[in-house]
Every structure is written in structure tokens, then in C-alpha cells.
Design a protein around this nucleic acid. Structure first.
Length: 513
RNA sequence: GCAGACGUAGCUCAGUUGGUUAGAGCGUCGGAUUGUGGCUCCGAAGGUCGGUGGUUCGAAUCCACCCGUCUGUACCA
């Protein structure tokens, strides 16, 4: 037997997805609502390309065959390495630096875009995803950070997430640095262990206090038997860090009525140092600013356990967390974590310009947020009605022109409409097409109707309901359920009325549920 | 990256201790019905059994390696 020629296998690279009409419409709606908030705060859009020279993106340098795992990189024909952006912050720093003389600082700007990460994909975790960022560049004061927190809060509520269903948690890198210094990890040589401790703290949500205790101590073995080395901290230091993680607000840890002192048992064994105090002062200021503007701790909460962006954040860091349960398609509650975050990055522009250009900003994970909102039913249910289908019973040019005219009249009246573009000779297929496409109405005009100056208008939704009561095909066909005859010049008005009735039925069905 | 589980038609899955031509349901397409969706009936298409190599008279089945999916974990700007 002759082997069949190998057909090309149609396949998508792993970690990438095609987006459906529903996804695109839902995303557009989401982006629109976020944009409205940013615009109201006085931010302007800017867009940068998907590719950047690799060295401009940050820590990855093109000195090996592949610049690094984590980024998608290619070599240009002049042999310079370029990479797909993995966030929107580094490209913004490049844009500002390149145009520093033309940009009026402080520069308030927002942008949405696809970013790419070359890492292991998982459910709800892709190698291409969308972020929507806002940044203020050239603003040194923490009032800029406070504004970012308030804007994140407003954004959550603009998306229909009720107050109490989310919280913006704020911390400061300087506080964490101070704690690390206090427990004896302040030295140059302790960089790696500091990272280990911070990563362990970041796992608190996932593993709980006991898991973190292991990671801060000897290490932890996961359920597959794989072992993660620990930070080997002194037991007093471990307890101190766990006190921080278990606190829900900074007031639980610090007594600042007179002198600044730690309240809790283990932390009290350590001294408050300069870093800690500087960080704490900034946090207190942010707290006072947002409270002054009416944002209480149910919206923006100072929380010393927030760990983010270990590499480049220099001061305040903040993240938006959802507090309601998010379930997956199997109905299981999933660990959702944050849907957005940011912080102050005073060093990024300086890398290019040598000038101190302090900046702060945050990023919303659009794809993640959309998953959560979809499960909450807060988005994407604004259904778009499929087009009215004008069927074709006669392929003669004059007849086709007549059908086209009907379609154009409907469109001119603002009604989505299309003429059947498949093989018109099989009429049954035209209605089958309309049915599967969820068309609300089909228009039929054969020679009989044409001679009488009439059209048949078929309510496909009502017809589908009636079909449940009819069991034999002859009756089904001859009764022509939910079909009315109208004069051709009344086509648009009749369709409009029918669509309005259908919309009313849908509204009632939703209310009745 | 590390550890484990899994991989048979478009989808969900059968397939005996290794034994002839690998099956079912759903879906798709065609017909009954060339001017009416659904139901019903009839028929058809669709498979390198994830890939490669090995053991064997003989492999979907046993072995090795590779690829992919899922779970956990590491990294995550």
C-alpha cells in the first residue's frame, strides 16, 4: 500500500493560545474600563514595540549562544541580539531614556500590550500574555506611590470587584532589607541567602507558615520527593520572619506611639535599624495619604509580608489581591495570588542616562484578571447577537442584488446582517448554518414571495423552542414554525421589532433565574 | 531545570497472558427531504496506536531513548 503523503500537522507552539470572539470582546471590555480609570487620573497612552535590543531589557546580556532562559531572543542580521519584551517596564525606561530631553517630567503614562516569557507554561499560565501598566516617571515622592495604590483600587472597583473582595497590599523593600540586616544577613556576601529568605517569604500563601519555616531552616521536600534547600537561619530569626508573615497589618508588629519598637516576642529580640525605620516612615506616609483621601485599610493595607520584584524595586511595592474564591472549570478552588502589582524602581532609567530619574508604576495581569472575572460572572456575558441571515433561493444576478439590498437596508438600520455566502442550492444547509451560527432571524424570499412583493421572516429562536414539541419531520417542515410573512418594504421594521422582542425575552429569562 | 503519572479516530474512551483486517459512543460529511433548522433512519469518511530503535515467527501490548500533556516543585523581571 502506498504511503500517504505526510500532511503538515497544524499545531500551536506550547504555551500560546488562539483567542476566540468571546475572549476578544471580553478583553476589549476589560481594557476599556481600565483605560477609563487611567485617563481620569491624567495618564496618557504610549506604545513601544514587542522587540527590544536584549541588553536594553535588563539583566540578560547577549554573551552566550542563547542570551538566557526566560526570554525569546533572536539575532539580527548585524548580529545584535534582540528579545521579545518580558514586561512593559523595561521598555518604558528605554523609551524615556531615549527621549529624555523631549519628555516633560513627571511623565504620567499607561500602555497595554503583549509580553512574552520563555518558561514552562501551565493551566492559566501562558508564554504570551497581556499586561496593562501605568507609571509615573520622574516623581521622587511617596505621594506618587500612594496615587498608584489608589488608582489600582479604583481600577478594581471599576471592573465590578466589590470593596472587600480585593485589597491593595503595600510594603517597602527598605523594611524587608532592614529585617534582613537585623537578623544578620546585611552583608555583601549574604546576597544569595537574602534572596532565599525573600523567596521563602513569598511562598507563605502557597505553603503556609509550616512550609515557610522549613524553607527558612533546613529545607523542604515536596510531595514528589524533590528537595528544596533552605536558608538555614537561626531559630530566633525564623520566628521573627514568621511573625511578620502572620501579621495582617503593620500595626500588629510595631508600636509607634512613642519610640519605634517591635511589639511581638521574637522580633523584639532584634533592634530596629536605619533601613527599617526609613521604610517604615515611607509606609506610614503612604498610609496617611491614602487614608486622607478616604481609602481605608479595607482597600489599601500596609502589609509587611508583601515580597515582589526582588531584582529591581527599590522602595514601596504594592500588589492587588483578590479575596474571593476563584474556581477552575472543574469547580475546584485555585490559589489565585495577585492580579497585579508594582513598585518604585529608581534605578532603571539611571542605567541609560546616568541621571537620577525616580519612577513608580504598576502592572495589571489582564489575562489572569480576566480568568478570575469570567468565573465570577462579571465579564463577557454582554452577549453579541449573531447576524440576521438573508437566505438565497435564486442565484440569478438580479435576485442576488435584491438579497444584497435587503442586507444593506438592515445594516443601514444598525442591524447585524449577512447574505448566505455558501452553496445556495442546498437550502436546508442555509438554515442549518443559521442555526449553528446562532442567528436570531432568517429572511427567506423565493420566487413566490418575490412575485407578491413579500418576504418570509423566520424567528429561529422561537422556532427552536417549538421544535421540542414536534416529533415528526413532515409536520415540522410543513408547519413552518415561528415564521411570518411581511411586505418587502416592511422588512426592516418587522426585523427590528422581532429583535426587540427577543431581547426582552432574554432580559426576562435572566431576571427569572 | 528536577520528580512522578499519562499518551489509541476531531472529542471521550474500549482493546484479553504479545496473535488474523484496531473498535464503540459523540461529532463531521452524504442521503431519505433538489423551497425550511430540530427529531428519526440509512450510509460514508476519518488511525504512521505520540516518535525512533530494539526483543520476537508476530508488538497498540514487552524494553530503551526521545517528544508531548498533566500534577508537584524550582525559577519568575
Amino acid at each position: 500500500m502506498a504511503k500517504k503523503p505526510n500532511k503538515l500537522k497544524a499545531r500551536l507552539p506550547r504555551g500560546f493560545v488562539d483567542r476566540s470572539a468571546g475572549d476578544i470582546r471580553a478583553t476589549d471590555e476589560l481594557l476599556g474600563r481600565i483605560r477609563e480609570v487611567y485617563e481620569k487620573y491624567g495618564f496618557d497612552p504610549v506604545e513601544t514595540p514587542a522587540f527590544e535590543y536584549t541588553d536594553c531589557l535588563g539583566k540578560f546580556l547577549p554573551d552566550t549562544d542563547r542570551p538566557n532562559a526566560g526570554v525569546f531572543s533572536v539575532q539580527d542580521d548585524d548580529e545584535q541580539w534582540m528579545s521579545l519584551r518580558y514586561d512593559l517596564t523595561a521598555p518604558l525606561a528605554r523609551h524615556v531614556s531615549e527621549n529624555i530631553n523631549d519628555i516633560q517630567l513627571p511623565y504620567r503614562t499607561y500602555r497595554a500590550g503583549w509580553v512574552f516569557r520563555n518558561e514552562k507554561p501551565g493551566p492559566g499560565r501562558f508564554r504570551q500574555f497581556m499586561q496593562f501598566d501605568a507609571d509615573t516617571v520622574g516623581a521622587p515622592g511617596v505621594q506618587a506611590d500612594a496615587e498608584m495604590c489608589m488608582m489600582m483600587s479604583d481600577t478594581m472597583e471599576a471592573l465590578g470587584i466589590a470593596r472587600g473582595d480585593y485589597v491593595i497590599r503595600v510594603n517597602n523593600r527598605k523594611v524587608l532589607d532592614g529585617v534582613l540586616e537585623a537578623i544578620g544577613l546585611g552583608g555583601e556576601e549574604d546576597g544569595e541567602r537574602r534572596l532565599t529568605v525573600l523567596r521563602a517569604m513569598d511562598k507563605h500563601d502557597k505553603f503556609g507558615s509550616e512550609g515557610v519555616r522549613l524553607l527558612l531552616g533546613d529545607g523542604r521536600k515536596d510531595e514528589s520527593g524533590d528537595f528544596t534547600a533552605g536558608a538555614n537561619l537561626h531559630p530566633d530569626a525564623i520566628e521573627a520572619i514568621l511573625e511578620i508573615l502572620d501579621a495582617s497589618a503593620i500595626d500588629d508588629l510595631i508600636d509607634y506611639t512613642n519610640d519605634l519598637t517591635f511589639k511581638t516576642a521574637a522580633l523584639s529580640k532584634f533592634a530596629i535599624n536605619e533601613h527599617f525605620e526609613a521604610g517604615f516612615t515611607e509606609l506610614k506616609l503612604i498610609s496617611d495619604l491614602v487614608k486622607g483621601a478616604g481609602y481605608m485599610s479595607d482597600r489599601i493595607s500596609i502589609d509587611p509580608s508583601v515580597v515582589r520584584g526582588l531584582e529591581y524595586y527599590t522602595g514601596p511595592v504594592y500588589e492587588a489581591e483578590l479575596l474571593f474564591d476563584v474556581t477552575n472549570e472543574k469547580g475546584e478552588v485555585v490559589q489565585f495570588g495577585s492580579v497585579g502589582g508594582g513598585g518604585r524602581y529608581d534605578g532603571l532609567v539611571k542605567r541609560f542616562t546616568g541621571r537620577d530619574v525616580p519612577a513608580t508604576g504598576f502592572s495589571i495581569g489582564v489575562s489572569r484578571l480576566m480568568t478570575a472575572l469570567k468565573n465570577l460572572g462579571k465579564l463577557g456575558t454582554a452577549d453579541v447577537v449573531a447576524p440576521v441571515l438573508v437566505t438565497v433561493m435564486d442565484g440569478e444576478t438580479a435576485a442576488l442584488a435584491r438579497y444584497q439590498k435587503m442586507v444593506q437596508d438592515l445594516r443601514a438600520a444598525g442591524i447585524r446582517a449577512e447574505m448566505y455566502q455558501g452553496n445556495w442550492k442546498k437550502f436546508g444547509n442555509q438554515l442549518k448554518y443559521a442555526d449553528r451560527r446562532d442567528c436570531p432571524i432568517a429572511i427567506i424570499q423565493g420566487s413566490d414571495e418575490r412575485d407578491a412583493g413579500e418576504v418570509q421572516i423566520k424567528d429561529l429562536i422561537e422556532g427552536k423552542r417549538l421544535s421540542e414539541e414536534i416529533t415528526d419531520n413532515v409536520t415540522w417542515r410543513e408547519s413552518r414554525p415561528a415564521q411570518i410573512t411581511a411586505k418587502e418594504d416592511a422588512l426592516v421594521d418587522t426585523v427590528r421589532q422581532l429583535l426587540a422582542d427577543q431581547a426582552e425575552d432574554r432580559r426576562r429569562a435572566i431576571e427569572g433565574r
